[in-house]
Amino acid sequence: MNHSLILNYIKQSQMRRLSRLEKGSICLHRLNIYILPSRQGLFFALIITLMLIGSINYHNSLGFMFTFLLGSLAVIDILHTYRNIWRLRFSPAHSPPVFCGQTMTVPLKLENYGKPTREELCFQFADDSEQQIFDIEESQFQTIQLQRQTTKRGLQPLGRIIVSTTYPMGLFRAWAVLNFDHKILVYPRPAESDRLPAESNSNHKTTGSLGQGSDDFVGLRNYHPGDSMRHIFWKAYAKNHTLLTKQFGGEQQQQLWLDWQLLSGLDVESRLSQLTRWVIEAHHSDVSYGLRLPDTVISPSTGDSHQHQCLRALARFGLND
């Protein structure tokens, strides 16, 4: 009775610890580092046991000496393995969003307060079998780039990262679970079709002199963050280091509405994929485009931040996080 109660308690407290999200950074210390023999270590123990039995039976002194040397090495290995991940502080940094299905690079900031170099640190996302192995060289602050497969759109939790090491002899594995309160943004997977909706072009075009396209230069204005790099007037920057943005078309510019309603035959995810593709295409062809979703409307504009705003709206559509 008592026994199962205690076991239950341990299980629950472990679950609590595992599911608790850490804001900011996590430092590895004796409360969150676990260490157990690896499979190789268990095999090593078996071999030592056989050797010990042999030495006892044959009264072989050097046999004893050798067996005890190997045993002591294993014991010392515990300390070295533990020390290899002890007193490391991790914190995730902002990772640039990617489209679903792509590999995201997650920068993990690392502060070293213990052993100067760390060998063979293995990082693994709990839901991914791929192990990423790093040697950390002598420096107190550094950033490592973890690769994360993305499978779902939206503002996703980063997920548990298991950091482990078997260095130096591989007989023991020390590990810790990093569960950050950190979200990563994943855009929807873009659809294959790359044709922009033609009807939307005529339907939502405002009246103006049709003879002037978007290539029509109107004037210059001061640079605002988010303006497309392609519209920067680099000559002026070269002359006197002021950033100016070239303006085209003005009121007369074509306006493209990417509308949820245009894709009425498809299911939600396909619609989002298609819209994502359109946003990418529209951004590349430098037309002023707007996005119309059932719950959001983003008025037409251009530029990187506009694209991000649209993709972000698409990513988070229908998800309340």
């Binding site: 000496m65 002591s72 014991v75 002899m169």
Partner: peptide, 20 residues
């Protein structure tokens, strides 16, 4: 280094491990 650190443990085990 590992062996040097293991040596004192080894000697203790060698002299103290009960012999039959």
């Amino acid at each position: 280094i590992l062996m040097a650190q293991a040596a004192p443990l080894m000697l203790l085990l060698f002299f103290l491990f009960p012999r039959l």
